[in-house]
């Protein structure tokens, strides 16, 4: 307890260095700051940095829907890391976030790259005619889909949960410009 108090005192002295104020005064200044120029600068800086970080770098996302189960639960929270593909291209198996509408993002896994053919035969995914091992898929399915070629500048993404009917699962190819980033965890 004594060491914790010492730590607090050190912290608040650091906060107001060489001010000569008592611990209680420093604590009160910290909790109820006076509305002066320095406080205004700090407040504006926090607002601007927060706006930039949470709009352009780490977009908060609320996961709703079970298309990525069991990798991601049907309800959850995550951040979209926008910088994930600034300097590298997406590769097969990457979990990506696709911009669907203004406020709706899709969480999917990339299975097909530009120029490849994607096909489902009796629930098994085939890329360029060869079966793709998918250890992340835990549910058996009976999906069938004739082969289709991924257009240049497009990627093919599917969710991990294949327990629903093929018509009810939103998946397919999307333009790379629609790639919004990747989940932070």
């Amino acid at each position: 307890m004594e060491s914790f108090k010492k730590l607090l005192i050190t912290y608040f002295r650091c906060w107001t260095p060489h001010s000569g104020k008592s611990f209680s005064d420093s604590a009160r200044d910290f909790c109820v700051p006076s509305f002066n120029g320095a406080f205004l600068v700090r407040l504006i800086t926090i607002i601007i940095v927060g706006f930039l970080v949470f709009n352009y770098l780490l977009r908060p996302c609320y996961i709703k829907g079970g298309s990525m189960q069991p990798t991601y639960p049907s309800l959850g929270f995550n951040f979209c890391w926008r910088g994930k593909y600034w300097f590298k291209k997406p590769k097969r198996g990457d979990i990506v976030i696709i911009k669907f509408t203004r406020n709706v993002l899709l969480l999917k896994r990339i299975v097909g790259l530009p120029g490849e053919t994607v096909e489902f035969r009796d629930g098994k995914l085939y890329i360029n005619g060869k079966p793709l091992p998918e250890p992340y898929v835990k549910n058996e399915c009976d999906w069938n889909m004739p082969p289709r070629t991924v257009k240049p500048g497009h990627y093919y993404a599917i969710g991990d949960n294949r327990s629903m009917s093929i018509n009810k699962h939103k998946f397919g190819q999307f333009r790379k410009q629609r790639l919004y980033g990747g989940p932070l965890w």
Binding site: I98, T101, L106, R148, K170, F171, G172, Q173, F174, R178
Partner: peptide
């Protein structure tokens, strides 16, 4: 033209 954002 209307494009599909994600197309099967």
């Amino acid at each position: 033209a209307i494009n599909k954002i994600i197309e099967k």
